[in-house]
């Protein structure tokens, strides 16, 4: 927080604020990327509760993946977001207070493996199809659909890898891209 911390917009002052100052004081947080992994009860409304907490704090979730776990009563949520350390700490504590949240962990990048699946629909005719497929091979992607004027490729990896693939494929004419958002699991024997 900047020099305005705690005093912007008190109704007891008459100053008129300029937008730049408001932005500076409002806390646009940037910091390391966080992967939050949560075990939640598999019940309706849980996703809304979790998402609501983030929006209340003005946090933007970069990616969100939800799926079943080995226990049918529980679901796994994986979120990635940008954030300075302190507010993340506050959000994790608030998430802990949700009755339907069983466990939550802020995974350090070094102690976890993360993967994401992305589907790329690329414009490709008989002339360019070969080149696109070559790139796909380099990135260990799979061709999952082909038509006369397009090819669809599946790529799995970290978000860096997916972004790299996007860079090389874009010049061919990227029609559409769909990403799952990262999921992650801790390294070593112990459970995430």
């Amino acid at each position: 927080m900047g020099r305005f911390a705690g005093v912007m917009g008190e109704p007891g002052t008459k100053e008129v604020f300029n937008l730049a100052d408001l932005e500076a004081a409002g806390g646009i947080h940037t910091g390391r990327r966080h992967i939050l992994t949560m075990l939640v009860e598999n019940k309706p409304g849980v996703l809304a509760r979790v998402a609501g907490l983030f929006s209340r704090r003005g946090f933007n979730i970069d990616t969100l993946a939800v799926g079943p776990t080995d226990d049918p009563m529980l679901s796994r949520m994986t979120l990635t977001l940008d954030g300075a350390l302190h507010p993340i700490d506050q959000v994790t504590k608030q998430l802990h207070k949700l009755v339907n949240v069983i466990k939550i962990r802020d995974l350090e990048p070094a102690e976890a493996v993360a993967r994401e699946l992305a589907l790329f629909k690329v414009a490709a005719d008989s002339e360019t199809r070969g080149q696109v497929m070559q790139f796909a091979e380099i990135f260990r992607g799979n061709v999952i659909d082909v038509s006369k004027r397009s090819i669809t490729i599946e790529v799995t990896g970290t978000d860096d890898k997916i972004e790299a693939f996007e860079q090389v494929i874009r010049p061919f004419g990227l029609i559409e891209m769909v990403r799952t958002g990262e999921i992650a699991i801790s390294r070593g024997r112990s459970a995430t």
């Binding site: 309706p44 409304g45 509760r49 609501g52 907490l53 209340r56 207070k97 949700l98 009755v99």
Partner: peptide, 9 residues
């Protein structure tokens, strides 16, 4: 939702 401790539908 943002103002309850918990809710049950």
């Amino acid at each position: 939702m943002p103002i309850v401790k918990h809710s049950i539908m």
